[in-house]
Design a protein around this nucleic acid. Structure first.
Lengths: 233, 233
DNA sequence: GCAAAAGTGTTTCAGCTACACCCATGG
DNA sequence: CCATGGGTGTAGCTGAAACACTTTTGC
């Protein structure tokens, strides 16, 4: 620590809610802790922030250590600094959330020492989590529910090529309600931010659907920054 | 600091964007710094968080020290943790924003030692601020612009009794655009969350306007939590 | 031929927008 | 009597919601 600053120091961590979409369900990545406190509990992946490490960089570090992925969609969520949130003393944590593409064959990397293993858990059926991690998760879900109505985050969870039905399932699992198929398609195609690829699905035992990709260029052109997507209630 | 935690400590502060509405304009409270670094610069009011002090409590402490007010509308904004944001080393800061009622006669309390004085500055014409405080301010403005469209935060800036025109001016100054008077009134009254008091304005040299108050009870009953207020663009 | 999902239009309704004039009051 | 802001209604448009049947494909 440099001179000039007073000695008000605090212990300080990052916790991360990592969303993925698998088997038609929204899931998050949990680890099983291998250390006290909360040994053997499920928890959000987290780490201590090092000196002279920016918090965004630290958040990316977690993600890389766990999944081997870089350049992932990731946003800061909220900072949790209640005195009693950690049994060993005042630990402030900054929550982040991330969204990753689970292409099925992607394996989780061997997990760091403080965790036994990591698993994808459906958000509809989470166990009780360590610390205040349940609250952090709930805040993240609130945030993406709101965000999906004005930013194109659904595409972060899908492979590059996807069908409209897959896209609809992402919206439905985040918003936790059924949407009307015709209205969804009409609206989505009207935005003009999907590019229809010439291709169709392969290897399905029913009528193959048209594949689309998200056209970032058009999106950026149409809306400098935002877009009113999907009504909220 | 308690045993059991590793020695990853960080210096850690709170900075606060305090909004007020005065003379028909949206303003924020700035202090003039009396200490290095950035001595003599304008800055957001901030402080170091003490050990065993929750961050929300610390944020309320700033507000009380500067304004003598408690029980104020206040929300966490974002956490800024870039390595180079503070010239003396890595200082993480949690930004908050608050909204207070400036009833005109309310004086600012004598300011703490690190500041010479505090002033209300119109947000439309802010000086360059110390550290990354300009970025913190801009994020807070973005946030309340979005928030005013789904939560009744405008009332936090007004006295208990207000006219519809005053309310409209609050919306206009936050959204930074003119609104149509008839449409604004129709919509606002339709929500059914304003209570018409029997009274009229006094001491104005034109037709006195009807006074209203925000009916929190009705608001809570109608919308458990949220409301789609004012379209966003 | 059947199971499973793809794909497709129209009507109705609510809420947003645009817009201009008379009224009450104090000085 | 004049200056200042208070207060009011309607018509047109746009976007959301509701709703059911035919098509394609693999097996």
């Amino acid at each position: 620590m440099q001179p000039g600053l007073p000695l008000f120091e605090s212990v300080f961590t990052i916790d991360c809610v990592i969303f993925g979409f698998q088997e038609g369900e929204l899931k998050i990545l949990l680890i099983e802790r291998n250390e006290e406190p909360y040994k053997d509990w499920w928890a959000l992946p987290g780490l201590f922030v090092e000196h002279n490490e920016g918090i965004d960089v630290a958040a990316e570090r977690i993600l890389y250590e766990l999944t081997g992925l870089r350049d992932i969609y990731m946003e800061q969520l909220y900072t949790f600094g209640e005195v009693n949130r950690h049994p060993d003393g005042r630990v402030i944590t900054v929550g982040y959330y991330a969204m990753i593409r689970l292409t099925g064959h992607k394996e989780l990397k061997p997990v760091t020492n403080y965790a036994k293993k990591a698993f994808w858990h459906p958000v509809s059926d989470l166990p009780t989590l360590a610390f205040d991690h349940t609250a952090i998760f709930e805040k993240s879900l609130q945030k993406i529910r709101r965000k999906i109505s004005y930013q194109p985050i659904a595409f972060e969870l899908l492979p590059e090529k996807f069908t409209l039905t897959q896209l609809q399932h992402v919206y439905e699992s985040i918003l936790n309600k059924k949407l009307d198929k015709r209205n969804f398609r009409k609206k989505m195609l009207n935005y003009g931010i999907l590019k229809e690829l010439g291709e169709k699905q392969r290897g399905v035992s029913y009528r193959a659907a048209t594949l689309y990709k998200f056209d970032r260029r058009k999106y950026a052109k149409l809306f400098q920054k935002e877009l009113s997507f999907m009504k909220e209630d």
